[in-house]
Design a protein around this nucleic acid. Structure first.
Lengths: 195, 195
DNA sequence: CCTTTCGCAATATGATCGTATTGTAAACGA
DNA sequence: TCGTTTACAATACGATCATATTGCGAAAGG
């Protein structure tokens, strides 16, 4: 045999190439040859690690979910171990879904690319459903630490509003309808009346 | 010459066929032959009315903007000439953006299909930007009739929140993350605290 | 009437797609 | 060392894409 190779790592490399193309030129520009060119190798090598293009796209989609998860976790955990107040943490959690930095923009563009694809594949929509529920419950948990007790507000509804608001703002950011600063200010306005 | 034909009407027919395919199977399923099959004619006939596929897609995209405009106008104007209160009108205006009925779902699915396309064509994004501003000012106008005067609330911010919220809810509806009733209830919750 | 022009269909063309097949160098087990 | 297995490259293949070309019946104008 030739040198043994870490298959998972190789697969991840190709998934990365898919990402770069999908973010810049959309999913429709993701072909075997463009991925091979982006990864600097041959189509045959991709075929050696993925039985079909669909498997390659499936890994790229799974990577998307992982990356979003990491981004959210980093926002909550706080890379500087600064223990902030619960309201600041909640704000960071919600800001993590806005494509304000380059990483966020890539995530959002790839997410948008997979959005319509998901509409026609309900079985893969189930995976995103789970992620959506996790997000909702995380926001609700943080909300509970923020709002004044005995306030008549419905935490679940507040969480649903905040999550939908952030997703709508993400779309507007991608389209350039608002700036990152405006989006953050809009979110802040809604957060200010939460209690 | 053979019988003279209304070119605009013919073009509209093909754009309709594009719509049906895009809504059911996505933009990537829109090809010259699928459109011809959907319209029940030949590829040659489409070519006779559109110099290229891009022109066909451009008309379909323009039709999207027109249809959204009509839908919003109908929601505000009220097909039953019932003169409702300003709050009911505002709610109808915002509900018009939610894909709760079949027409709305088609609009939203086609809109999603064109979304990523727009991300890579900034010159066409400008057209949607104008529509977004019109929506914002319409919501702000209706808000001004609803809120108590002398309230300290920022109407522009309120409008931005409501529009982003509705767009986020539209995404969630398409993905099946919420039902139409839940989305309406979430919107209502936010409307209830506007004054 | 008859020539021109429009409306449309059929087919040709070349590019590109995903995938299957084949070839080959490298390195391990026997 | 020799055959088998792994990692890849190269290329072949058939389908499908957008578009160009060609042909032809119908009808309006001279």
């Amino acid at each position: 045999m030739p040198r043994r190779v870490d298959h998972d790592q190789r697969r991840a490399e190709f998934a990365e190439a898919v990402w770069r193309i999908a973010a810049e030129r959309g999913l429709e520009a993701v072909t075997m040859s463009t991925v091979a060119a982006e990864a600097g190798t041959s189509v045959g090598r991709i075929q050696h690690y993925f039985p079909s293009k669909d498997d390659l796209l499936a890994l790229a989609a799974a990577t998307l979910r992982d990356r979003i998860d990491q981004r959210v976790r980093a926002a909550i955990g706080g890379s500087p171990p600064a223990p902030r107040g619960p309201m600041a943490t909640l704000r960071e959690l919600l800001l993590a879904f806005l494509p304000t930095d380059e990483e966020g923009r890539v995530l959002a563009r790839v997410g948008a690319a997979f959005f319509t694809h998901t509409l026609r594949h309900p079985e893969s929509a189930a995976r995103y459903r789970r992620g959506h529920e996790l997000i909702l419950s995380a926001v609700a948990d943080h909300l509970r630490r923020v709002r004044k007790p005995s306030s008549g507000s419905d935490v679940e509804r507040e969480a649903q509003i905040l999550v939908a608001l952030v997703q709508g703002l993400a779309d507007q950011l991608l389209l350039g309808h608002v700036t990152a600063e405006e989006a953050a200010a809009i979110l802040q306005y809604q957060l200010d009346r939460v209690p």
